[in-house]
Amino acid sequence: MAPPPADRDDGDASANPNGRITRDVVLAAALELIDRDGVGGLSMRRLARVLGRDPMILYRHAPNKAALLDGVAEMVLAQLKVDPADPDWAGQLRAVARGYRALALAHPNVVPLLVTRPLATPLGLRPPGTLRPLEDILTLLTRAGFSGPDALHIYRALFGFLHGHVLNELQELIENPDETDDLLRLGLYRLPIREFPLLRSLAPALASYDGATELERGLDILLTGLTDSLTPRPAAQPCPGPSADDRQRGR
């Protein structure tokens, strides 16, 4: 998305003239700009104008735009709740998946930050808040009896699926929403029938896409496969103590 014109009205520049500028305030304002105008619409100068401050003040909280984007991703991911003590590991992963989808739908312009930026940053250099879901899910799964490597495989499989799902859901486009014929609504009539017979035949299924239903179906497939192929170790049982007869004989 192209940056907005320099003379665009970003709201009341004096909306926060006397309020204390903290990192949280800066990140919240940055998120609002991204939600409205996309990542390309965010600049330190625009953000300073929204906050009614000199741009140099913002550099105390984010040395550059890259750090600002990392902070926004960290703030959004902080809303993703994981209960590592949940005894139902599969149920907890479903709850995490639903929560991630909800965040993606609430902040669609932030999704590229959540999906692509971490891939360009080594784990140890990522903002700690972006690693919290990983640590909590590893804790959840190792407590359930999975080995560390298997827990990592499950995390990667889950978030690989989630990233693909939310990107797909956000890009489900209808060409002609007023059309009643599914082939026309999706523009699939443009495809040569001899080259894409199956894709054209699935027009009703494609047109009736439901993100929540697709998520649950995908999780059914994923979690069933994980349960079948990766079996957690049973919880260690305490060694039984000597019986009363044993203690009597030991006298």
Rank of each mutant, 00 (worst) to 15 (best):
M1R: 14
D7Y: 03
D10F: 13
I21L: 15
T22A: 04
A29G: 00
A30I: 08
D35V: 05
G41I: 04
L42H: 05
M44A: 08
R45G: 06
R46D: 10
L47I: 06
R49F: 04
V50L: 04
P55D: 04
I57E: 14
L58R: 07
A62N: 06
P63G: 10
K65Y: 02
A67I: 02
L69G: 04
D70S: 12
V72M: 04
E74R: 03
Q79F: 01
A85P: 01
D86N: 15
D88P: 06
Q92M: 12
V96G: 05
G99H: 13
R101Y: 08
A104Y: 02
A106W: 02
A106R: 15
V110W: 08
P112R: 10
P112S: 11
L113T: 03
L113N: 10
L114G: 08
V115Q: 10
L119M: 11
L119F: 01
L125T: 02
L125Y: 01
P128I: 02
L134D: 06
E135Q: 10
D136Y: 07
L138R: 15
S147G: 13
G148R: 15
P149K: 11
F161K: 07
H163K: 10
H163G: 12
E169Y: 00
E172T: 12
L173N: 07
I174T: 15
N176Q: 14
E179Q: 12
L184R: 10
R185K: 13
P192S: 12
L199K: 01
S201K: 13
P204V: 11
L206V: 05
A212E: 15
A212G: 09
R217T: 13
D220C: 01
L226D: 07
A236N: 05
P240M: 08
P240S: 06
R247A: 14
R251W: 12
R251Q: 12
